[in-house]
Computed example of a mutant assay.
Amino acid sequence: MEVGREAQYDVFAEQFLDHARDGFYNAHLDRPACLDLLGDVAGLRVLDAACGPGLYAEELVTRGAAVVGVDISPRMVELSRRRVPGGEFRVHDLAEPLVWLPDASVDRVLFALAVEYVDDRVALLRELRRVLRPDGALVLSRQHPFGNWLRHGGNYFEPRVVEEVWSRGWRVRYWLSPLERTCEELRAAGFLVERLVEPRPSPEAATLDPERFERLSREPTGFLAVRAVPDPR
């Protein structure tokens, strides 16, 4: 049982950019939460792992960060380069080591909405810890496991791969896993969870889609985000 190493988003990269730029879930739920957990990044070097089309990187550069972005999708990397000319982007499969990044060479790591697509998550998280400075932090977001369980049913505690077609016709394959599994994978990779948040929509989203705003303000059916720090012990 595995997701595999296909660049799934490559076939709809431009469509995803159009969707995520101002989309309710991305622009008003996940991005604000992740950027808040990253904190003040002015003057810091940030690794944007699974950078997608560069929407997070654009905001990080605006806030004064030097961004290094990687993504398995060549089309996503090209979109990032166009969007953020001042960033450094390359095509990279996160199942492989980040061999060009020295130990303790970045101040922050952002890993937004991509952990579900990685088969050996502990190995990747260990690599992210390797390149992170001892006083740095990792911000990771993922689909909310309870929301996944409500949609897919079955045994909440049993990790498994699912395949589905999203509303725009995008076929995706990814891991379902409980919250405790994500926390355990972080621990096994040498991290301590500093904060865990269950984002609610930003206030300005209330006028965009009142029904969705109300639902996501009371139901854990969106995302969750974690700020983890290297375990000094």
Rank of each mutant, 00 (worst) to 15 (best):
D231P: 06
R126T: 12
H19Q: 14
Y174N: 11
A137R: 01
L113G: 14
L224I: 04
E184S: 11
L176I: 09
P102M: 03
G4I: 07
V172M: 11
L140R: 13
S80Y: 05
F146P: 06
A205Y: 00
A66V: 15
C183N: 06
P178K: 00
S167I: 15
G23L: 05
E204I: 02
G43C: 00
F16V: 04
E116W: 12
F157H: 08
G69T: 09
A33G: 01
A7F: 05
L60Y: 08
L128H: 04
A95W: 09
R151H: 12
R168A: 11
H28D: 02
V115W: 05
L47W: 03
V115I: 15
F157D: 12
A27G: 13
R173G: 14
S217F: 04
M76I: 05
G153E: 08
G43S: 02
G136Q: 10
G190N: 11
L132Y: 00
R130K: 06
L132E: 03
L60E: 15
P199L: 15
W166H: 10
V226L: 14
H144Q: 11
R200Y: 08
R82T: 09
H19P: 02
D30W: 01
V11R: 15
E116C: 07
V3N: 05
R227Q: 14
R212N: 11
E163T: 15
R215F: 06
Y156R: 00
R126Y: 01
R63K: 14
R82N: 08
G39A: 01
L55E: 00
L110E: 02
R130G: 02
C51A: 11
C51T: 14
L60V: 07
E163R: 12
L44K: 07
R5V: 07
G39Q: 05
V197Q: 08
S80L: 08
L196Q: 03
R83I: 15
R173S: 15
D18Q: 14
R108K: 15
E180D: 06
Y117P: 10
H152V: 11
V41F: 12
G222N: 10
R63A: 09
V162A: 12
E88I: 09
L150I: 13
P210M: 03
F213S: 05
V193W: 09
E59I: 11
A104E: 15
D107C: 03
R227S: 12
S167Q: 15
R82D: 13
E198T: 13
R151F: 13
V67W: 05
F223R: 14
N155S: 10
L94H: 00
G87W: 02
A189T: 03
L55C: 02
R233T: 05
A189Q: 05
P201I: 00
V99F: 03
R215D: 03
S217T: 10
R227N: 12
V165I: 13
A137E: 01
D22E: 15
S73W: 04
D48G: 05
D22F: 13
H144L: 08
P159K: 14
P74A: 13
L113V: 13
E59K: 12
L94I: 02
V229H: 10
F146K: 01
H92G: 01
L224M: 10
R160N: 06
A112Q: 05
S80T: 09
P32D: 00
G136F: 07
R218T: 15
